[in-house]
Amino acid sequence: MQTLEIIGTLIGLVYLWLEYRASIWLWAAGIVMPAVYVFVYYDAGFYADMGINVYYLLAGGFGWLMWLRRRSRPEATGLAEGAAPSDGAAVSEAAPQPEGAVLSAENAPAKNSTQTAARARTITGERTIAPMPRGRWLPLGAITALAFGVILWVLLRFTDSNVPYGDSFTTALSIAGLWMLAQKYVEQWLVWIVVDAVCAGLYFYKGLYPTAGLYALYTVIAVFGYFEWRRLMVRQRT
């Protein structure tokens, strides 16, 4: 199992680098890595973490699709929630009308050319980095708290886990963090800073030293990742 843990650690390093660079290929590593760690965590008795890696495995495909999903919104409203057009944002032009043609209300020229351009421009291609809308924090916090309670109850009642509270906490927070990552919200890094720091301590306590070292590195890189994503977000907007 030590060999499998080392393999998972190496894949985790690749995943970390791809996430830092906001590369969509992080989801490929994010599918392989949890498949390896399902067996590592089962052997170590981290049952909630084993379960969350099954979730990671399934969510990897969802996240990949979410990052590829095209956005097509008017620029005037498409930047709501902090979204910004990517470098390759396509600008659609209004089709020319033949002379003498009667213009309908839909294709009539706008009074303001700026409004016309804003209505014509669409955001396409890979999902862009954005801040998480304020209205989503409370529902996400409530769901995370509920997940923590359910996972803790399962561990206390049905398993022999000797770290049920820490395991439940990191698992519930990881569910929230992965959803935020799939939405490409910059604040997902703040969630991972907490998760990674707690996990590093738990894994060291359980003797999973390569994994503990990996998560300690995750904690440091997550801090840099937050500021890197903020820089990328600003660059996308400009």
Rank of each mutant, 00 (worst) to 15 (best):
I221M: 11
I193K: 02
G207D: 03
W192C: 00
L152V: 03
A197S: 14
Y226K: 02
G78P: 06
L214R: 07
W192E: 00
A200V: 14
I175W: 13
L16H: 12
W25D: 13
T170Q: 10
T171L: 13
I123W: 06
Y41P: 13
V191G: 01
W153L: 15
V195T: 01
G135S: 04
V40E: 02
A172R: 05
I11W: 11
A105N: 10
S174V: 01
L57M: 13
P139S: 00
Q188G: 03
K206N: 13
A130W: 02
A80R: 10
D167H: 04
V198S: 01
V163A: 08
E228F: 14
Y56N: 02
R157I: 12
G45Y: 03
T238K: 11
R231M: 04
Y41S: 10
L10K: 12
W192D: 05
D196R: 01
R119L: 10
L146A: 09
R237A: 14
V54P: 15
L232C: 03
F46I: 13
K206R: 11
A145P: 00
R237V: 00
L208Q: 06
L152S: 06
A95Y: 13
T122L: 09
L10P: 15
I11P: 13
A172T: 01
P139F: 06
L58M: 13
Y55N: 03
V223Y: 07
V154H: 15
L79C: 05
F158A: 09
A145V: 02
A145Q: 01
G88L: 12
A80C: 07
S23N: 11
Q236F: 13
G177H: 02
I175V: 06
W64E: 01
K184N: 05
A101V: 14
P139N: 02
R127L: 15
R157F: 10
L155H: 04
S161W: 00
A90R: 15
Y209S: 05
P74I: 03
G125K: 06
A84V: 07
V234Q: 11
R119S: 06
S174K: 07
Y37P: 11
Q97V: 13
I7Q: 07
A145L: 13
L181E: 06
W17Y: 15
Y205W: 08
A142L: 15
L156I: 14
E228P: 01
L16K: 04
L68V: 00
C199S: 15
A172S: 09
T159E: 12
G30C: 11
V220W: 12
L190C: 04
N112Y: 14
E126C: 05
